[in-house]
Design a protein around this nucleic acid. Structure first.
Length: 427
RNA sequence: GGAGAGGUGGCCGAGUGGUCUAAGGCGCAGCACUGGAAAUGCUGUGUGCUCCUAAAGGGCACCGUGGGUUCAAAUCCCACCCUCUCCGCCA
């Protein structure tokens, strides 16, 4: 959520930011008009309340002296009716104002490449090189099916398409990767591990920016609970409506499954586990002092990259352009893994600085050295998303005989297993 | 799921319709005292909105949340949420 004061005082800057994103300005137009009207109305109703408060006190004093106050009370009843009427108007206006404000995206940071779609994204750096194959590399579905580590058909029967099921060494690989990533972030990158609820309430979904705009992409359960699309939601909302009682920065990491309806992307990448309704992810979240958030974004990105470096996977880092960053982000880097079987780059991490956008929505504050409270800056990054990481491991590690050689870093977490083979393993 | 108790400022805690402008304590900050400290004393100490060119200063709202009654609500009424205790069910 943008600061209404910024909108009021620097409307042109806000308009330029939205234009750079290619975002519509109708919500902004409505907010500007409603804000002006609201302030006029508030002034009016507060004058009336002041009058009522003053006179009510006088009535109390007069009554204690035994005087009759019938006439005054009658007059105040009329003032009260007027107040109720105007208060209702203010409430309606504020509800509409808030709803529109919640639909305005964050403003892009000045360092972003300018452009309206992914073609304007800039490659910041590349790690490693694509492996050369002496044979035609297969896609992860073929590799995995031969190894017997997936069973998508039965998963579709029990649930529906897009819900992956891992079996045997496939399940173990998922578990090993989760453990490997959590250990790395906790032991070497200074994060505190959290295991949060996997469903959250509506207020939390508004806090991180999924609602109200992206309701269609979310799974909505009974009791008005939502399945989380990312651990970002519960972890960031850990401090919703709080003044953080620990010294900043605060680093948190969490493994959770993630649930996404992927509404509107039917037909895209339906085969395998590249685009699914449920996947596992280790997420990193930071709560930081505003002046440090861009430096913190760089280290957050480095923490995510470290996962891939240790797995010795070929990847590249993109700085997303003004038109391609997500709703709540001011700046965002994507990390993409090379998948030879797809002959394509796969996004496995998105590292974003939200500045005070989420903190303002979720009311997350800290105490400054001067004693004043202020909104923190929040950041998060995938560290990293699992289904696609598995795709890259399978496709990059595949051998001509159909077996898959695992990255060295994961071997201890696999109980010493170095290679996945159909019908067995080689230690 | 059932019964009961409770939710008040950074924290503890008083307050059952009218100077509540929320007592008192703790904590915190400043000052005084001191060679320095402790102890003690004094003073101050919330958030949001709004008016004002700004500052200074006014005003409004906030006692779990949302409604209602009343000239007037922390206080009365209704609904909901959460916490605790006991019972039931349960991995």
């Amino acid at each position: 959520m943008l600061d209404i004061k910024i909108i009021r005082e620097h409307e042109e800057v806000v308009r330029q930011g939205l234009a750079a994103r290619g975002a519509p300005t109708d919500f902004l137009d409505a907010v500007v008009a409603d804000d002006r009207q609201r302030r006029a109305l508030v002034t009016e109703v507060e004058t009336l309340k002041n009058q009522r408060n003053t006179v009510s006190k006088q009535i109390g004093v007069l009554k204690s002296k035994g005087q009759d106050t019938t006439e005054t009370q009658k007059a105040m009843r009329e003032v009260g009716d007027l107040i109720n009427q105007k208060d209702a108007e203010v409430r309606d206006l504020e509800a509409r104002l808030k709803d529109n404000l919640l639909r305005i995206p964050n403003l892009p940071h000045s360092s972003l490449p300018v452009g309206l779609d992914a073609s304007a994204n800039v490659v910041v750096r590349t790690f490693g090189a694509p492996r050369t194959f002496a044979f035609q590399p297969k896609g992860h579905v073929d590799v995995g099916e031969r190894l017997g580590i997936f069973d998508f058909a039965r998963a579709a029967r029990m649930t529906g398409s897009g819900f992956p099921l891992f079996l045997g060494m496939g399940a173990k690989l998922q578990r090993a990767l989760i453990q490997f990533m959590l250990d790395l972030h906790v032991s070497e990158h200074g994060y505190t591990e959290m295991l949060p609820p996997f469903v959250v309430n509506t207020a939390s979904m508004i806090g991180t920016g999924q609602l109200p705009k992206m309701a269609e992409d979310m799974y909505h359960a009974t009791d008005d609970l939502w399945l989380i699309p990312t651990a970002e939601v519960p972890v960031t909302n850990y401090y919703r409506d709080d003044i953080i009682d620990r010294p900043l920065p605060v680093y948190m990491t969490a493994y959770t499954p993630c649930f996404r309806r992927e509404a509107g992307s039917a037909g895209k990448e339906t085969r395998g586990i590249i685009r699914v309704h449920q996947f596992d992810k280790v997420e990193m979240v930071k709560f930081v002092e505003p002046s440090t958030s861009y430096a913190e974004l760089e280290t957050l990105l480095a923490n995510a990259e470290d996962v891939l470096k240790r797995l010795n996977l070929h990847y590249r880092v993109l700085s997303l352009c003004t038109g391609d960053i997500s709703f709540a982000a001011a700046k965002c880097y994507d990390i993409e893994l090379w998948a030879p079987g797809q002959n394509a780059w796969l996004e496995v991490s998105s590292c974003s600085n939200f500045e005070s956008f989420q903190a303002r929505r979720a009311n997350i504050r800290y105490r400054r050295p001067d004693g004043k409270v202020d909104f923190v800056h929040t950041l998060n990054g995938s560290g990293v998303a699992l289904a696609r990481l598995v795709v890259a491991i399978l496709e990059n590690g595949q051998e001509a005989d159909g077996s898959v050689t695992l990255p060295d870093a994961i071997v201890p977490y696999m109980g010493g297993v170095r290679r996945l083979e159909a019908g067995g393993v080689i230690g």
